[in-house]
Amino acid sequence: MNTHFTPTIDSPLKANGRFGRMSYLGWNMLMSFVMIMVIGLIFAFTPGLLTDPYNMTGSSTPGTIAVALIVIAYIAMLYFTFVFTIRRLHDRNHSGWLSLIMLIPLVNVLMMLYLIFAKGDVNPNQYGVPRPTQTWEKVLAWFYILVFPIGIFAAISIPAYQDYVQRAQQVEMQQNMQDVDQ
């Protein structure tokens, strides 16, 4: 009997297979980088999209194409988000259909936290053997882990600080006006 072993090629961009926590975070970080670059290029090559968002100048073609490209990029991002979520669920030996929970607001945050923190099966399960995490995936995952909280902190603190500075300037102007009046 001739048994020939044919290794299966695990494509991370397809829903069948498994993703460990670090692979899941690494691929999500890569997807975020790609989306930022794609949307940045769309804005860079579409003059007036940022300065004239309501198309007051009447040139509709560049804006329409840019919006269509952004919609296509967003759909691609949604697709890959579901692929990565399904693969992570497979690592936990759950059905990929649970990925539809990601469509429910607020519950999707809990699902994301579950996928990040829940340990995967170390043994083969019905979705295959554990997939080894590549070094570059680990690097991107740690970058995601370290940068994401900093980004949230910055998104909250910078506008709060700007509001504080603006209110302090208003109070200072009021005090100066009162000093002039006296």
Rank of each mutant, 00 (worst) to 15 (best):
P7M: 08
T8I: 12
T8G: 10
D10W: 13
F19G: 00
G20C: 06
R21N: 03
R21H: 07
L25D: 06
N28T: 10
S32M: 13
M37A: 15
V38Q: 06
V38A: 04
I42A: 06
T46N: 06
L50C: 08
T51S: 14
T61M: 03
I65S: 05
I70A: 06
V71W: 05
V71D: 02
V71M: 07
Y79S: 06
Y79C: 07
F80V: 12
T81M: 12
T81L: 09
V83E: 04
I86W: 08
R88G: 01
D91T: 05
D91I: 02
R92D: 10
S95R: 00
L98C: 02
I101F: 08
M102H: 09
M102N: 09
L103D: 08
L103F: 10
I104Q: 05
P105D: 08
L110M: 12
M111Y: 02
L113Q: 09
K119L: 08
K119Q: 13
G120K: 00
N125H: 03
T133R: 05
Q134R: 15
K138M: 11
W142R: 07
W142M: 11
F143S: 11
Y144R: 05
L146R: 08
V147P: 07
P149N: 04
I150P: 05
A155C: 14
A155G: 14
A155L: 12
A155I: 03
P159K: 00
Y164F: 15
Q166D: 13
Q166I: 07
A168S: 10
V171E: 14
Q174Y: 07
M177E: 13
